[in-house]
Computed example of a mutant assay.
Amino acid sequence: MSTGHLTIDLTALAENWRALDAMTAGETAAVVKADGYGLGTAPVARTLARAGARRFFTAVAEEGAAVRAALGPGPMIGVFSGHMAGDSELIRDHALTPMLNSVDQVLRHFETLPQHPFGIQLDSGMNRLGMEPAEWAALREPVLQQRPALIMSHLACADDPDHFMNEKQLRAFREMTDGLDIPRSLSATGGTLLGPEYHFELTRPGVGLYGGHPFADARPVVTLDLPVIQTREVLPGETVGYGNHWTAQRPSHIATVAAGYADGLPRIMAPRLGLWHGDQRFPLAGRISMDLITVDITGMEGEMPEFLSLLGPHQGVDDVAEAAGTIGYEILTSLGARYARSYLS
């Protein structure tokens, strides 16, 4: 095999959903945007539906249509970006539930798709999506008369339990929604972990389902094995890779593996990243290039392996993200299309 092999453990995905669901008294949805966080819309959505999820969320209507195609009729599929211009047919034909974010979206939805289900997104302080308190106050009564399926907002700092913004947004959301007989949702994965006062009637975890922080107890969902193309002996003073960036300080054994920044592995993480063979870690030697990574496997025990592991039991998506100076979300959603994929269930 000439490409990396990405293995997605659907059993772990389902167990992560069940674990987060068990933390709340209300309903637990599932966020499956960005092609199921890069792992495949259809297998991810179907697995979560079998686990018990009955509401799903995507970023845009096109993603919602793909989830509907995978799940068929029945589950609610919410669209965070709301009802954008040109989305009416997609929303209608695929029975999507847009989370309306603005006065313009409310007017567009009511005019083009009257009686079609919708939700409302409120801005509780993140200043990204949703109606601000003054806008909500102006539209509240006519909107409530149409019985929205859900009222939601989103926490900006939920990954930091002690951040003052969490309580500030909780208060703002309550001020805008207390007393309403409509399901509410404030929390994704981080908010779910903050405790019951943040749960309301619906939580909607995303990255925690896929094994990412801040859900520290999540089961790993993804492993990634990279094939070894070639090995060579390098003498002291010889260099490896572009720019003579790495120089051998001793007789060294170098493996070249098939992956690179075209496969979602940022070039910047090379100095802090290692690949694994069993319980042995081996540092990268030189720069990550478009299609290739060179690894110093000097001292490797046993026979030369066909693969070295980037993601596995010793190194998860958040470890790789830390090496790249980013977050696990970005690593997951950047995993390249060239990888061969298999699903465990």
Rank of each mutant, 00 (worst) to 15 (best):
L155G: 02
F173Y: 11
G179D: 14
M152D: 09
I151H: 07
V143M: 11
Q145M: 08
M152T: 12
A172E: 01
I151T: 06
D178A: 11
A158Y: 11
D159S: 12
Q169G: 11
R147G: 07
M165Q: 04
R174F: 05
M176W: 07
D159F: 06
S153L: 05
A149G: 04
F173P: 05
R174I: 08
H163L: 15
K168Q: 09
P161N: 10
I151S: 05
S153R: 00
C157F: 10
P148W: 06
L155A: 01
P142R: 01
L180K: 09
Q146K: 14
M152G: 15
D181A: 10
E141K: 08
A149W: 11
A156G: 08
A149Y: 00
N166C: 07
G179A: 09
M152H: 06
D181G: 14
Q146Y: 03
Q145T: 04
D181Q: 09
L170G: 05
E175K: 13
N166I: 01
D162I: 12
I182S: 01
R171Y: 13
P142A: 08
A172L: 02
P142N: 14
P183I: 00
S153A: 05
M152K: 13
L170W: 11
Q169D: 14
M152L: 13
P142H: 13
L170I: 03
I182V: 04
V143D: 00
D178S: 12
P183W: 02
L150A: 00
D178W: 03
F164T: 04
E167I: 13
L150I: 14
I151E: 08
L180Y: 14
I182M: 04
Q146V: 00
A158C: 14
A149M: 05
A156R: 10
D159A: 15
C157M: 12
A156D: 11
S153M: 07
D162Y: 14
E175W: 12
L155E: 04
E175Y: 12
H163N: 10
H163S: 12
D160T: 07
D159K: 06
R147Y: 05
